[in-house]
Write a protein that binds this DNA or RNA. Sequence first.
DNA 1: CATCCAGTATATA
DNA 2: TATATACTGGATG
Length: 172
Amino acid sequence: MDTTKSEACVFELAIPTAVGDFRASYSEAGLCALNFPSDKRAVKESSVRPVPRLVRRWHEITSRAVTKLLSGNSPETLPPLDLSAGTDFQQRVWRALCGIRLGQTCSYGEIAEAIGKPTATRAVGAACGANPIPLLVPCHRVLAANHRIGGFSAGLKWKRLLLAKERTFTFA
DNA sequence: CATCCAGTATATA
DNA sequence: TATATACTGGATG
């Protein structure tokens, strides 16, 4: 990737929700990461630096979007997404993911076809796993071809929870 | 159901 | 360059 080690994510802010505090990271280009509550370390507010007004505005939009999604509604607006950390292939996958509307799902194979590489199904799975912004980039709406739930980096419980919220299908 | 293999992108050595 | 891994998918036993 980038050998020069970019200083992408400069601001980290919490998004309090009924299911815990999400952690959003912003670069100067927009939202560059979104983590689930139980994910690793606790939210560390980088309040050492003053948070620019623009970032706070993005955060407000992000918070609203997350809240909406958690209540089963599609957010009208999203903050600018900074996906520059990904490779071309990954960004293509993520962009395809953004096209999945709330309530519908597709398989990894279908995503692979959508980006013109029908046989790269496994690579698509890897790209989904590398998705820095779950929820907003709906990687949880991608199921395995055999109609099973597949996997999820941040924990299958989240995938199930999100799908349940979106009433995609009831999963025992 | 359990394994195995094909095929692709990425990380690490 | 070589090897292991990943949120797969299809075939086989």
